[in-house]
Design a binder for these strands. Structure first.
Lengths: 345, 345
DNA sequence: TAAATATCCGCAATCGATTGCAGATTAAAA
DNA sequence: TTTTAATCTGCAATCGATTGCGGATATTTA
């Protein structure tokens, strides 16, 4: 059973006593082949359980109908949703997906990208690892004729197609909402500032404060608080300040916000009356904590579909004069829940 | 920049005035090539930014170093974790992953498998769609020399490698635990019985009742309650019985258990004192509901690693006489949390 | 009926890397 | 110095599908 030889177009050709090229044309439904032979070939192919060897086909045609995806972790909600979206759109176009995870490591990211180049993927879709600084591996992919699309965590300086969230706007809205709810001292848990998304979220926070003529207090801005544990640590530190915050915007993730909630709960601090909490991402669990957590929905599945469709559109128009690096920005949505409803609805 | 011609071994050969075969040997680190030329080739390859064309290599060698994965949904926690595990183990061995989702549809599952056959993947890893009944597409893959590994949702009659959970045992333990906590009327939310995993979970439930000399009450067994909504519906029905259950085992999923919890909460029924709840899968959220939900951990990432390593082991031994279809059973772990602690710890 | 066109079909090259085989060169043994 | 063995290298075939080109046949037009 194992590694039995598969039937090729030559087997079909031999059986029907015609040339392999005719078989090929029949199978690819070319119109340079007689309708009768076409039928015959198709019938014989089915009988012999013929499966086209995509490798050979791709080698000859110089394209693989494959999209490579590189994300930090496959099993993080946001990324698995984006991938699901990409898969859905790609499947309809007959494209395959090769998935890699960078584990947030630049070194592994580079290896993944190189593998994908070797695999002759037509397109690489990537969301950068947190410690990604040098981007020559991406330039390299482009130099090898691979379309590159960045999403969410993008390197601004690279001129590629991009699909991003309007992080600054979303952040601005979230903080404005908290201000309107009457919170006066809003702390920020920020992510690694080498990533643009976290810089943008910080900018939105700062803008909101300034717009509402509120002071920016450095002691309320905590760096690198982007996991549940780091969020919890940051919260302990914040709540033990002589003049603690009355709200915390966990701009990094909902996990971080969860850490905040747990610490508040342990310290007996009432949410949302004594402490407002806002997360980021709209993870499934934010709906079922008590109180439920206000957060920001990124439309991750839709984002994935957008990425894939952007590629397909680009392919259709690629013969046109000049391709302008396109950036699609998806507007995230603030989901107001209990954790910030100080003054009710 | 686009679709520029890539450097091949012929380019290197030409530049160095040697044969392409020597370049190939140098690049694959064969010992049938002079150390000096090897160095030279490697150097030149780097200079010309050479990338091996894996398609051509695979075509020639007749293997693709690629594993195809088919799951119902990529973005379901359990599956994305398994995939992450597979990726981790595969990456170390230099294997790539092609990911497909069947969307729980047999028809799409068939297409996915066929695509993977065309792609000449070396191995297909699959967890069946819920409506998967006919399995000729899988047999087909095997007939084409592809190693097949089923995990979690497996077709028993197909003689393949399998990695499964001991669902019956886990189920048995969960129900026994509830009995020991003093629950007397334990309902079962069961999943589609065409899937073995759900049959096994039901069997474990029944065994536990029998072993503890408790009656099996048909009115407490609800079919097809495997989503949050269906779980909620089932719960409403159960709790409105003249003689309602005092515990519900949502054997299908934690989502189903969440539906139970929400209905109980709305109806003002105290958990765990008036109603015990147990889920299945140890989704992240089960830890943070109030009360937290007792559930069963399936070690999903580990399961993925096990699947991949099973394949690699099999490859190493494949020349040995006869390969016995191996089945690896992973023992899940009951995670006791508040929702079933009627009599405390 | 002859000429012009359309429709099919097959030959052979091609995509890029690998590998068995044979010849060439060098090193070791007699 | 000659024979034998070891080490390199190149030639050419191969993996399976695709495609430009030219020839053969069928169809249409003059």
């Amino acid at each position: 059973m194992k590694s039995k030889k598969r039937t090729t177009i030559y087997d079909i050709a031999e059986k029907l006593n015609i040339a392999a090229s005719s078989v090929s044309r029949a199978l690819s439904n070319s119109n340079h082949v007689n309708e009768a032979t076409k039928k015959l070939v198709l019938k014989t192919a089915a009988e012999l359980n013929y499966k086209r060897n995509t490798l050979a086909s791709n080698l000859r045609k110089g394209k693989s109908k494959t999209i490579g995806v590189v994300v930090p972790f496959i099993n993080q909600n946001f990324f698995s949703n984006v991938i699901a979206g990409i898969e859905e759109a790609s499947y309809q176009k007959g494209y395959n997906l090769i998935i890699c995870q960078s584990n947030e490591l630049q070194s592994k990211e580079v290896k993944c990208v190189n593998t994908l180049i070797n695999q002759h993927v037509d397109c690489i879709v990537i969301s950068l690892a947190v410690d990604s600084s040098d981007h020559s591996h991406l330039q390299n992919a482009m130099d090898n004729g691979i379309e590159l699309i960045q999403f969410d965590r993008v390197a601004d300086e690279l001129e590629t197609l991009k699909v991003i969230n309007d992080n600054e706007q979303a952040s601005f809205e979230a903080v404005s909402h908290m201000i309107e709810q009457g919170y006066k001292r809003i702390a920020l848990l920020e992510g690694p500032q080498n990533l643009q998304i976290f810089r943008q979220r910080k900018a939105g926070y700062l803008n909101a404060l300034i717009r509402h003529e509120m002071p920016v207090l450095d002691e309320l801005i905590i760096e690198n608080a982007w996991t549940k544990e780091l969020g919890a640590n940051a919260t302990r530190k914040l709540l033990n300040l002589p003049n603690p915050p009355d709200a915390i915007f966990a701009s990094t993730s909902d996990f971080s916000a969860l850490g905040v909630l747990e610490v508040a709960s342990v310290m007996g601090i009432k949410v949302p009356s004594a402490l407002g909490i806002c997360g980021y991402s709209n993870e499934a669990f934010t709906e079922i904590t008590s109180p439920s957590i206000t957060t920001i929905d990124q439309f991750s599945v839709y984002m994935g579909k957008t990425v894939a469709n952007l590629y397909f559109q680009e392919m259709e128009n690629k013969d046109e004069t000049e391709v302008v690096p396109k950036i699609i920005s998806i507007k995230p949505k603030l989901i107001v829940r209990s954790s910030t409803q100080k003054r009710g609805v």
